[in-house]
Every structure is written in C-alpha cells, then in structure tokens.
Design a protein around this nucleic acid. Structure first.
Lengths: 151, 151
DNA sequence: GTTAGTGCAAATCGTTTGCACGGTT
DNA sequence: AACCGTGCAAACGATTTGCACTAAC
C-alpha cells in the first residue's frame, strides 16, 4: 500500500499538472479516504470531515467536487447503488471486486486472479481499450441468512 | 429465446399469482422490451411507448412502476450509471455481461463461461447466497478509438 | 494581483408518492 | 361493486451549478 506522504506528493503533482490548487479541503478529503478502510457515501464523508476538521466548514458541494476529481484521477473508486446513490473507497490498492448484501448493504471485498485475467482477455477480444472494470455479486450475506432464519 | 406468447402467459400468471392486474400499459412495456434489442433508460422507453401506443398516454410514473415490477420478477435487468440513471434490458436470455464505452455510452454484451463459474465459486466461498451478479468493463470502444485519432 | 476553489442556496435530474379517477377482475 | 393501476403534479433525495467571496498561487 502506498505511503501517505507519497500519495500526497502524487496528488500535489497531479494538481500542479492541471493548474489546480492544493487546498485544505482537498487534503482532508484525500486523507479521510486514505485513513479509513471502508466505503462511504458523500454524505458520510461530509460528516466525517466535519468531525475531523470542524473549523474548515467544508460544504457538501466541495465533497462532491473533490470526489469527482479523485475518481477521475483513479485515486478513489465508486460503487453505484442505482437511484440510492454511490459509495467511494480508496482506490490505490490491488484491484478487487465486491460482494454486496441486498438486505443489510454490507460490502465484502475479494480478489480473484482468474477473473482479472479473463477480463483483460475479453476486452482485447473486442478491441476494447479497457480503463476500468467492476464486478458485483449481489446476494444475502452469511449474517443476514442466519437472521432471516430466526424470524 | 422464449417465445413472446409464452412470455405473455408467464407474465399474466405472475400477475395473477400476486393479485395484480393485467393492463394495456404493462403489456406494451413488456412487449417494447421484448421486441427491442438493446438497453433503454426509463425516459427512452417512455418515448418508445408513446410512439407505439400514442392513444394509451402512458405516464413516466407507470413506466417506473412497471420496470420495478419486471425487474423484481427477473424478466428484465438493469445496469446502473451512478447519478446518470439506469438502463434496462430484456432479461430472459442467457446471462451475459457488458463492455461499456465511456465516450459514446455504447453497451456491448458478452458471455463468458469462465467468469460465470468463478462467480458462483466465490459466492460459495464467502457463504454468500448469490441472487444476481454483474460485470462491467469500462473503456473506449473500437469505434471511438478510431474517431479520436481523427481529431 | 490573478485565477481557481469555496460555501451557500437555488436549480436540476432521475425517481417516487399521494390522490382522485378509470379500468380490470 | 371492489380494488388495483393509472395519470398528474407535487415531493423527494442525490448531485450540480451560479454567484459573490476567499484563498492559493
């Protein structure tokens, strides 16, 4: 996993290259995503930042703007929940996919070499220049299966 | 591929079993999805229905309600585009996944036995009761790659 | 000092809902 | 006749945008 100092440098460079400015808000959002394992909605991230840096008074609009920027730069990933919004996670770790519980919304990550390889092959077969890929397995997690039985 | 008459029968049965009514609107929406290869937003489907059955005056609310119903019944599938909405496709065909062009929005379907098998295994390994799964490969389609060169 | 970023509130977009009426059973 | 489905318009929730002001360069 990338060191935070290296990440920060990378981010600053990225901003410079695009004539964008390095602001406290952007720094805190990046750090929040780096520090916290897990998947967050913009709203949740907003609350988190408000706790970490109350004096900064970061607005939800800035959260959205920065998340867009970070996702475009591949520093973070998003998982979409249809009309129920999106969740974001730090992205600079080995590629993985998700098991998503349709009852409790839990996200479980997994990595699979077989699938990774096959995806690249398929893209190539279709002359497709792959930039990204996602795999989601929906179902009922172990926990909820047990809970259901107790009803 | 299932015959339309069989599908219609299945649909009527489904409605009856749930004490729901068979209406012209529902029939037209089902038929539109059956007849048209491809992937549609609710809005696009609404326009399509308006053309096929202008006198029916189907509202967008009914489109949404029926799409929800059909998806729940596994007759159609949806692909989510984050805050940019969803697209729906007829679902009673062999399972497949999607290549999605991030420039023109084109959707290309593919089937892959290796991935299908692996997905089931992974779900099992995590004691996950799989109900559904999706794989999306994002990138630039052959067409757009060529177009880009001409700029 | 110039330019981009921010907070705020209003606007927008896709989707959902309450209600009175019309169609299916 | 009973009840569900519909159209309509209003409500909604997530996301985006215009604007005046502030901060980074």
């Amino acid at each position: 996993m990338i060191q935070y100092s290296a990440l920060l440098e990378k981010f600053k460079q990225l901003l410079k290259n695009n004539e964008l400015k390095f602001t406290k808000q952007r720094e805190f959002i990046l750090k929040a995503l780096y520090d916290n394992e897990g998947h967050f909605t913009p709203e949740e991230l907003h609350d988190l930042i408000k706790k970490k840096a109350p004096n900064l008074n970061t607005s939800i609009a800035t959260i959205y703007r920065t998340l867009g920027l970070l996702e475009e730069s591949k520093i973070i990933n998003s998982i979409s929940f249809g009309s129920k919004g999106k969740k974001y996670e730090f992205g600079l770790k080995s590629h993985h996919d998700h098991l998503i519980c349709i009852e409790c919304g839990a996200l479980i990550e997994f990595e699979d070499e077989v699938i990774e390889t096959r995806q690249s092959q398929i893209a190539k077969e279709h002359n497709f220049k792959m930039t990204n890929h996602t795999m989601n397995i929906f179902g009922i997690c172990e926990n909820c299966q047990n809970t259901d039985q107790n009803r």
